[in-house]
Simulated assay, not measured.
Amino acid sequence: MSTPLAVQLYSARDRLADDRAGVLRRLAEIGYAAVEPFAPTDDPAGFRRIADDLGLAVCATHATGLMRGEDAAEIFDAVHTLGTELVIVPGGIPREEFATADGLARIADRLNGIADQARARGLRFGYHNHDHELEYIVDGRHALDVLADLLAPEIFLEIDTYWAAVGGADVPDLLRRHGDRVRLLHVKDGPVVRGEPNVAVGEGEIPVEDYLAAAPDAWRVVEFDTCATDVLDALEASYRYLATLDRSGEGA
């Protein structure tokens, strides 16, 4: 694995609101060397100063605001300030739009338009799934597969492996199908039940090694949607587990 392990900062969103510098320092002390913000316009210059001081790279950033009518130019400026070229939409689309071919065509039109705007600003644009893109079947295929065919080829995918499993996908097969288009993986673990909290990676029902082996070149980003224990402790346990896999050559 050539890229360092990263954390989607949404995992620690409540702690970040109280002590951003302290949370980032703890992640760096654990051993993480990259982070993925979720609110790029929230003081990007200040965030970048702290991250640089701690040696934390920004692997990508989520930007739901691109689907919610927020100022795209402001978002793209913030992405540049954060020091990444990868901007990702992780939501903001009504679930029911994924249920039909017409809905998927409308989604693709919107995403392709945003990709054009991002490209004009020197950025690369990606899409992040949840469970419904795999749960809905359109013309005999997962909605995510149909959508991917409608997206401009330069739009990359960030596959949330846990949500894909919750949605009913054969996750290794999904990852192999999309190959190099999968630039990043959200790595998480748990009981594979919607609404139940995540657990530290390696402590749940997810066959983590199989998922990583199916997308060996994708950037690994640990995330917790919810966590029943202290999330920073769980992120530390996740790091130790994934670092052990890398040292042993598994999942690589």
Rank of each mutant, 00 (worst) to 15 (best):
I50E: 11
M1K: 01
P37V: 08
G122N: 08
A105L: 05
A73P: 00
L174I: 08
T229G: 00
P40E: 13
L232D: 11
G113T: 07
D116Q: 15
V138P: 04
T3G: 01
L147M: 11
D14E: 15
I93G: 08
G65I: 10
V166G: 06
E135S: 15
G92A: 07
R194M: 14
G249E: 10
I88N: 04
A243R: 13
A39Y: 13
A152Q: 12
R49N: 06
G195F: 03
G113M: 05
A6L: 05
L24Y: 03
H62R: 04
E250G: 12
R124D: 12
I137W: 05
L86I: 01
I137C: 12
V79R: 03
S11Q: 00
Y241D: 02
A152G: 14
D230A: 11
V208S: 14
N129K: 09
I88L: 06
G168T: 12
G202Y: 14
T244W: 06
A148K: 06
M1T: 03
R240Y: 13
G83I: 05
E236T: 05
H128V: 11
R49C: 00
P191F: 06
F47Q: 14
F156I: 07
R176M: 08
E97I: 07
L56T: 08
S2W: 07
E85S: 14
G46R: 03
D139G: 15
R25Y: 00
R183V: 11
A218C: 09
V201C: 10
E158N: 07
D139V: 09
S238Q: 05
L212I: 05
H132Q: 15
L235E: 01
A148M: 00
G126A: 13
G167R: 15
